[in-house]
Design a protein around this nucleic acid. Structure first.
Lengths: 273, 273
DNA sequence: CGCCATATGTACGCTAGCGTACATACACCC
DNA sequence: GGGTGTATGTACGCTAGCGTACATATGGCG
């Protein structure tokens, strides 16, 4: 139960950066710029050119589409497990989705050029980013399926859990309005559903803040999508010795406890299957 | 209006293979095996190991999820514009989705090992596959958004158009039941919607066959998602000289008219914006 | 040619979530 | 410490799509 001081920032709080071999990390570290990201800030407009890739540490970013009629939906979230700007190394430069800050906090950015140089060395950095991109693809796929088949309550639970996994505490700073726009549903639908969850003792909230009380309870009400995404992220980004000759041991954690904080939940969720 | 003989098979009917530089293509061509794929065949089970990557020419494959309760949804289609098996070069080896044959036809397969060897040369093949993976990601994202916000009619139109773009003719061999399982809706919903489209003179169908009569009409009833996906595929896989130093000119088409057949529709759809 | 499995059509009640329109209550700022 | 903007609560009718249960038609095969 180590309390985390958000003021202590380290690139290793981002799991991707933390799992780079020391040699690679050292090459990049001087180019990593710590930046603060404010709630609602637009990091990248739909179709816009990204100058940097972003490795969130305490911030959470959201990839979402805004439709012609103004309706919107999140297609994936990016927290300390990942990186924003996959399109830069995939070769397309831009995507039709918009990236905004869903939870204020910190992250490190890296100039696109620097990232590409390292990417083209075809080493661990290259392979790691591609595996992350695949995990992201799984997350997006699951969003698609979930949007089709699951109830708002199941989706809210899934979303809360995924967000929680990226945070050091069990409190999220988040209005119902914002959640609704993430899930692409009415705000009233969230009010009602969140009310049910609160009455059931799973969460409690007050104006702009939600605290998760019973994590396991949420997992029981969430759909299978949560666990699929969680397991796939774990498989792709932590089981290093899978195959494809990825035998090099990852760089040991730098000793900062925050870097591993959200792994607890991964362990927890794995117990279910 | 060249009529296409489906019996004439050539790897260049697959757009990815067709746009490789001659040098790369020659290296791979002897390893490409022509295979026939039957309707409904499961190419890769959810979570299963893929031994090959598949470049469809006349066949269309479907990536979809099957949920715990048996419900399912397509998350993306793969036709002659793409390749099945992205996870092999992304590094994850498997994905949680299943791949089946949605339209019977032919394709070429390439041993995973061979594909990886070429991929690791970090040349055009590498870059092309990554750009395709990004286009695929866009398609999946759009499916997610579409599932949330658009009506069955809009989605059916979108789906018909995307399928049509991968076929040489305007007739698809497809039962309503199958379409329903792709879109993740009831079969009755498709019956009703298809009936409307037929009454409106946009399509005509008989037991297991659908013929598109008024393509533009379908585009008008489809949601924006169709065009976004279409344009993004075009941008990523045809506009070669975008940036990132991809200036090498693509190998000229091999003269087989089938290789460019479905590009007509791309041009057509681009007129709308 | 006729059979029959399978594809398509139709109908009916039901429910989740939508759109709209408000009422209330909290937190922050002056 | 009261006012105000914003967050949350509630209510009501509406519709798309679901689940279920059948009826009908078609095309391929013996």
């Amino acid at each position: 139960m180590a309390t985390i001081k958000p003021a202590q920032n380290s690139p290793a709080q981002n799991h991707l950066l933390a799992s780079l071999p020391a040699e690679v990390f050292d090459r990049l570290s001087s180019s990593l710029e710590l930046i603060s990201m404010k709630l609602g800030e637009v990091i990248c407009e739909s179709g816009g050119q990204l100058q940097y890739v972003y490795f969130p540490t305490s911030a959470i970013l959201s990839l979402h589409y805004v439709m012609e009629d103004g309706a919107s939906s999140e297609i994936a979230g990016v927290g300390n497990e990942g990186v924003l700007g996959v399109s830069l190394f995939m070769g397309g430069n831009t995507t039709p989705s918009r990236a905004t800050v869903q939870t204020a906090g910190f992250g490190y950015r890296l100039k696109g050029r620097m990232m590409l140089d390292e990417f083209k060395r075809s080493g661990m950095f290259h392979d790691l980013l591609l595996r992350y991109a695949q995990a992201l693809m799984t997350q997006i796929s699951q969003t698609a399926v979930c949007n089709r088949h699951h109830s708002v309550e199941q989706q809210l639970c899934r979303w809360l859990l995924l967000t929680l996994d990226r945070l050091p505490s069990s409190e999220l700073t988040m209005t119902q309005e914002l959640i609704a726009s993430m899930l692409g549903v009415r705000r009233e639908g969230i009010t009602e559903t969140a009310g049910n969850l609160q009455r059931a003792g799973l969460i409690s909230y007050r104006r702009g803040h939600i605290t998760v009380i019973d994590r396991v309870g949420l997992e029981l009400r969430a759909c299978e999508c949560y666990n699929i995404v969680k397991k796939e992220f774990h498989r792709l980004l932590h089981d290093t010795g899978t195959s494809k000759g990825m035998q090099a041991s990852p760089r040991p954690m730098t000793g900062n406890p925050a870097a591993t904080s959200s792994l607890r939940s991964t362990e927890l969720s794995r117990e279910r299957q």
